[in-house]
Design a protein around this nucleic acid. Structure first.
Length: 591
DNA sequence: CTAGGGTTAG
């Protein structure tokens, strides 16, 4: 510390002193030393501006440094006679970043500032406050911004767009975005990522197109959202185009963008390319590893998932909860029961608190291996309450194993837990159908009708020449549906001549088998596959994205198609991929 | 001392 005598104090010395104190605080290794610096500046007869500057640096350290103490920052601030806005900003930022739930909310500090009239909040204050606001609070901040002189601040406009996007108030976000006079790369990126956050992937891609038209150059942050949108849509062609665009524009492919690309390729059914991107990464963090593990898992490549998990451990990156989720998922889908149990033990040993998703994977592990007893015992021994997903997993297994007793029990449980979810009624009804309990099934379907429940219809899409065609169950409105029908008739003739008997157990209505067989042919994945067969030729891969899980009969038929028409068909299910080649499926018929 | 991005059960 510079010794000084106030009599000789000049502006230069003042600056020098401030600089020394600031640098001391920057390098401060712990709170104990910080308190010493604090008492130093209190006891020294510093000029008021130097004192105030130093105190704000101390408060900032306490509020923001990992070595700091947010409570202490708050105490200091409210004890000091005239804290500046810098100090308030640090405290607000610290509170909104803090992991522990703060006793004081940033928004209430903001209100406090306004009611006492000084110091005046600035754009920094508002940006920090918005990060931790509830929807209601944020609207109040918004209206204050409009009444203040900050309405045209690009920073705040971006913060507001992001704030509304985080609240899933996408129309409000869009309104702020549209009213901006100048939109920089950040404004476009926040809006695009806002759409991605709520699964409006087409809107995100559309806006990316508008951004290009507006001549704003995207960067790696923008592209991460765009890539994620492609993955969400399962649009491989667009995804490949976007990847090529990134390379051509020489946009930096950092860890986050690489992770997004891995995920996109995996979700678009192209696991080889996902692996290529992964191998090219220089720095792989736990999220990158997790993406690769989950990618292998959803492709049914359990061995690859396990070996990449082992490599992750070897490379000293600690598996996070998602990595464990991926490896358990892989074991479940690959029927590797003992491997799954081994990783479960290692999850518990790692100190990670298993989440409901982890428990769900374990239940699924037993269910897919038809170990219903083990699954049920596992559910009963869980320290957390089983959720509807877990019960549905178990009920699907009961359906497959025609276990009336357990299935009925669990089905009732499910309806009690989630009485307004049509999916539960549909599932239980198909369970009764599988067990040939027709009267119970019609009773349930009557209940559904009475309650006005509608199940989500199956919907499959296929991308042809960059255009995504959607097909809904039983919907023949496609302009080329006559040709599609001809393809399907040919398929049924050739598939039938190979001795395939339609498996109608997946059809819900208790009607004649002939009607049921017809209903099977109208399943959305069949329409989409037929369209793919119509519009493309081998060796082009037919890639389908479906919103529900594939029905058993469609799965059989698709296997046969892949053989007799010699077409590779990749179907993205609601939960995983099926790759049909030469009459077999990569899921080994477990799904 | 401001604004934007990546993994997650059936």
């Amino acid at each position: 510390m510079i010794p000084f005598h106030s009599a000789f104090y000049s502006k230069d010395l003042e600056k020098e002193e401030e600089e020394t104190i600031a640098s001391l605080i920057r390098k401060c290794p712990n709170m104990r030393l910080l308190r010493q610096i604090h008492s130093h500046i209190i006891t020294r007869p510093l000029p008021i501006s130097t004192f105030s500057f130093s105190l704000s640096k101390i408060i900032s350290f306490c509020a923001l440094s990992p070595l700091g103490n947010i409570q202490y920052a708050q105490k200091l601030l409210f004890q000091s006679p005239n804290p500046n806005i810098f100090s308030f900003n640090s405290l607000i930022r610290g509170l909104s970043q803090s992991q522990i739930t703060p006793t004081t909310q940033p928004f209430s500090i903001f209100k406090h500032l306004i009611s006492r009239g000084h110091p005046h909040p600035n754009t920094y204050t508002i940006a920090f406050v918005l990060k931790s606001c509830s929807g209601f609070e944020g609207q109040q901040v918004h209206s204050r911004v409009m009444r203040s002189g900050f309405a045209s601040s690009s920073f705040l406009q971006c913060s507001l767009v992001d704030f509304y996007a985080k609240c899933e108030e996408i129309e409000c976000a869009r309104k702020v975005f549209d009213e901006m006079s100048e939109r920089n790369v950040i404004a476009w990126s926040v809006m695009i990522s806002g759409y991605v956050k709520i699964d409006l992937f087409n809107e995100a891609l559309g806006l990316f197109g508008d951004m290009q038209k507006a001549g704003v150059v995207p960067d790696e942050v923008t592209m991460a959202s765009v890539v994620t949108a492609c993955g969400g849509l399962g649009a491989l062609d667009v995804g490949k185009w976007v990847h090529a665009y990134i390379k051509k524009r020489k946009i930096v492919i950092d860890t986050k963008l690489s992770t997004a690309l891995i995920n996109m390729y995996a979700k678009c059914g192209c696991i080889e390319r996902a692996k290529e991107v992964f191998d090219e990464m220089h720095v792989k963090d736990s999220r990158a590893w997790s993406s690769m593990i989950v990618g292998f898992a959803i492709h049914g490549l359990a061995e690859d998932a396990l070996s990449i998990f082992a490599s992750m451990e070897e490379s000293k990156v600690k598996p996070n909860q998602v990595a464990f989720l991926g490896v358990l998922q892989a074991c479940a889908h690959g029927q590797l029961v003992s491997e799954g149990q081994r990783h479960w033990t290692s999850l518990l040993e790692s100190g990670i608190q298993p989440s409901i998703e982890h428990y769900s994977c374990m239940v699924d592990l037993f269910c897919r291996a038809n170990l219903l007893q083990e699954a049920y015992a596992f559910i009963k021994n869980m320290p957390v309450e089983p959720d509807p997903v877990i019960w549905r997993t178990f009920l699907v297994a009961c359906k497959k194993n025609k276990n009336m007793e357990k299935g009925e029990l669990v089905g009732q449980q499910l309806l009690k837990l989630e009485p307004f979810n049509p999916e539960n009624y549909a599932l239980l009804s198909s369970f009764y159908a599988a067990c040939s309990q027709w009267s119970k099934m019609s009773h349930l379907r009557k209940q559904m009708r009475d309650k006005g429940f509608k199940t989500v219809p199956g919907c499959s899409s296929i991308e042809v020449d960059g255009i995504v065609h959607e097909f809904v169950l039983g919907d023949w409105s496609h302009p080329e549906s006559k040709e599609i029908k001809e393809v399907l008739t040919d398929v049924m003739r050739r598939v039938g001549s190979l001795g395939h008997k339609p498996n109608v157990s997946g059809v819900l209505h208790h009607v004649g088998d002939e009607v049921k067989e017809e209903a099977l042919c109208e399943h959305s994945e069949r329409l989409a596959i037929a369209y793919g067969m119509l519009k493309t030729n081998a060796p082009v891969v037919i890639r389908i994205v479906k919103n529900l899980r594939v029905c058993e009969d469609c799965h059989e038929v698709t296997k046969i198609i892949s053989k007799v028409y010699d077409r590779e068909i990749v179907v993205r299910d609601r939960v995983r991929f099926h790759r049909f080649v030469g009459g077999t499926c990569s899921c080994k018929d477990i799904w």
